[in-house]
């Protein structure tokens, strides 16, 4: 059979699947009026579509729902509750760890974006500064050490993957992960050994670090989840992510996935 012509071969499937912007749909439609090979392809695909099986016609084994619910009942979930008391205890524990870490850093710079004021304004990116960040030193020029707050710049087209550059993760601020999984320290064990963790907080409460975040690919996360939880299948993906990487967050206590 004749293949569609070279010029229009590419958008024909998108046309069939309603994936073209209106103007291009029109363009393709007009082209089909004048091009029999392309017309044939489209007609063939439409004929295929007309006889494709329907999901509604799928036979469901008689006790299917029952057997799923039986499996659900047989595999109880652990309850995960984040109560105010537990939260305070967890915060105290994390604060203690951070206090130790802070001796080594200028924490004022670090928290500047969250405390507002002049320091916070300085944290917002100007394109030139962000670029200067990555440019190599010019001949003999003294290169200023980059203040920490520049690591919190918002994601733009020009930046590298936010999950890789950031010194801390503020989910919803400097990064939105493709998936986020919460594990307690106990659950995680040493599964995250070899990964670099960074302080993790959320947009709702950026000043409060709720755990240590470890950025990784889906595949890596699947391995870890399988080891740690015996959970064989991949994490649920966030449509609004700004990075392809996901994050496993290790917390002191259990964190409810619905927030708070």
């Amino acid at each position: 059979m004749n293949d569609p012509c070279k010029k229009y071969a590419a958008p024909l499937d998108a046309f069939l699947d309603g994936e073209l912007p209106l103007e291009q749909m029109e363009q393709v439609r007009r082209h089909l009026d004048t091009c029999p090979p392309c017309r044939d392809y489209v007609d063939a695909c439409l004929a295929l579509r007309a006889v494709m099986p329907q999901a509604e016609d799928t036979p469901v084994p008689e006790d299917f729902t029952q057997s799923v619910m039986a499996a659900v009942a047989a595999h109880p979930r652990k309850t995960r509750r984040w109560t105010p008391a537990r939260r305070r205890a967890a915060m105290a524990a994390i604060a203690a760890c951070l206090a130790a870490a802070m001796f080594l850093t200028n924490y004022q710079d670090w928290f500047a974006p969250f405390t507002g004021g002049e320091a916070a304004d300085a944290a917002l990116p100007r394109e030139a500064d962000a670029a200067g960040d990555q440019a190599p030193a010019q001949e003999g020029e003294q290169v200023e050490k980059t203040p920490r707050q520049y690591q919190f710049y918002a994601v733009t087209q020009d930046t590298a993957d936010p999950a890789e550059d950031a010194e801390a993760y503020v989910e919803g601020e400097n990064v939105v992960f493709a998936f986020t999984v919460f594990l307690t320290r106990e659950e995680a064990g040493d599964a995250l050994a070899g990964y670099t963790g960074k302080p993790y907080s959320t947009k709702d409460d950026p000043g409060t670090v709720i755990g240590t975040g470890y950025a990784m690919t889906v595949e890596e996360a699947e391995h870890i989840l399988y080891d740690v939880l015996d959970y064989p299948l991949g994490p649920m993906r966030n449509d609004q992510c700004t990075t392809e990487l996901g994050c496993i967050v290790v917390t002191e206590e259990e964190v409810s996935s619905s927030g708070n």
Binding site: H75, R77, F179, T180, L233, M236, N238
Partner: peptide, 27 residues
Amino acid sequence: QEAFLAAWQGLPFFRGEAAFSTWLYRL
């Protein structure tokens, strides 16, 4: 059945908005 069970088990672990159905098909 595995997919549904995994969905049941996995729901509490994950934060964020994601299409349940897309996730279910992936499982």
